[in-house]
């Protein structure tokens, strides 16, 4: 029953909301450094950021994910997040099971930092996000980044790790689309309840949407 009480109160929600809010700011700062991103219209920048934010957060969180105990460990054990912590923030295994699988698969690619960064940039500059106006401009920026990534792998990533690496990375972007969809579903559910949406931050509400308004 204490477990039920903890769940109904979503004891980790305020903390996770803060963490996600902070991460969104990092994603915005990162996007602004991608060549060409600032040249897009403000509307396209906003559409791209809102649609990719959760995917980039999932990607960047891989740096703190450890296969040792399948947790996100930031520095010391004081900042260790387990699946159970995320369920206490209102998410279910329908998201967390594929998310952990995704983290394990991505970790096993042993990406260089350069590849990791390029993958996040390619994710943000996806021309097929709903609402993008200048799709051809976004596409040309993404194409340039993909070329750089493929060249990097060819020249700097030794075999056998480089084998099919680019294809595997693109598959990760596909995985992120379904994780994004499931996250949206669960977020919508959560934000429908005022007692929970009031624990979110203004930035989270703006980026993921505010159902109570």
């Amino acid at each position: 029953s204490s477990m039920n009480l903890e769940f109904s109160q979503l004891s980790m929600l305020p903390h996770l909301a803060d963490l996600v809010s902070y991460s969104i700011q990092k994603v915005i700062g990162f996007a602004k450094m991608i060549p060409g991103f600032r040249d897009l219209s403000a509307e396209d920048q906003i559409v791209l950021l809102k649609s990719s934010a959760i995917e980039v957060i999932m990607l960047r969180s891989n740096q703190s994910f450890t296969l040792e105990d399948m947790s996100w460990t930031c520095g010391s054990n004081d900042f260790k997040y387990r699946v159970s912590d995320v369920t206490q923030a209102g998410h279910s295994m329908d998201l967390l099971e594929p998310l952990v699988k995704f983290q394990v698969g991505l970790k096993k690619l042993n990406l260089h930092e350069e590849e990791h960064v390029l993958l996040m940039a390619i994710c943000i500059l996806s021309p097929d996000r709903p609402g993008v106006q200048d799709t051809s401009l976004v596409e040309s920026l993404q194409d340039k980044l993909s070329e750089i990534l493929q060249t990097y792998i060819r020249c700097r990533h030794p075999p056998p790790g480089s084998r099919l690496l680019y294809a595997k990375m693109i598959q990760k972007l596909a995985d992120l689309r379904s994780l994004n969809e499931e996250h949206s579903r669960q977020y919508r559910c959560l934000s429908f309840q005022p007692e929970h949406s009031m624990q979110l931050t203004p930035l989270v509400l703006e980026v993921f949407g505010n159902e109570i308004s």
Binding site: I28, K50, P202, L203, E206, S213
Partner: peptide, 18 residues
């Protein structure tokens, strides 16, 4: 549905450092 203005996002995109 109310019109989205994305004021926070606009602000964070405009400011020089995040």
């Amino acid at each position: 549905k109310k019109k989205e203005n994305n004021a926070l996002l606009r602000y964070l995109l405009d400011k020089d450092d995040v």
